[in-house]
Amino acid sequence: MTTELPHQHTSNGPTSGRKIDRKRVPTDIIYHRTSRLLELVYPDQSSVQLSSEFLRVHSPSAEVRGHTPDQAKLQYGKKNVNIIQIVLQGSYAIRISYDDEHDTGVYTWHYLWELAENKTTYWQEYLQTLLTAGKSR
């Protein structure tokens, strides 16, 4: 199993003197098995739902992203992927195991926040990439 530190090239990489941004740490993480939606509840009671497919194709794992941008592998055919396990990693992230045997994605609080914030844009971008690559969900 390869687990790794949060990727430093996300928009919220470590910056000097950053205190933990508490509003970005969810208070509850609820996975709805049938609808395959991961619900994140934040301290201000706002909540956001991310589909397991969305999370799966945006996994920060090296198996998906590669070690350089040109090594990134396009993820497709994950329409029906389901989450089987979520474990805490230290106090900074969760690791999600999917039923397609992918279990190396470590999602930091910052990355989850970023995914939630850019949910629609990232999803459109993904659909566009699929289309150009001639693959299907």
């Binding site: 933990i20 508490r22 740490v25 969810p26 208070t27 509850d28 993480i29 609820i30 996975y31 709805h32 098995r33 049938t34 609808s35 994140l40 509840v41 301290p43 979520i86 474990v87 805490l88 106090s91 969760i94």
Partner: peptide, 12 residues
């Protein structure tokens, strides 16, 4: 103190 989220699975 960093608060940690509670993780739950529901069947709906």
């Amino acid at each position: 103190i960093t608060p940690l989220p509670k993780i739950t699975f529901v069947n709906d």
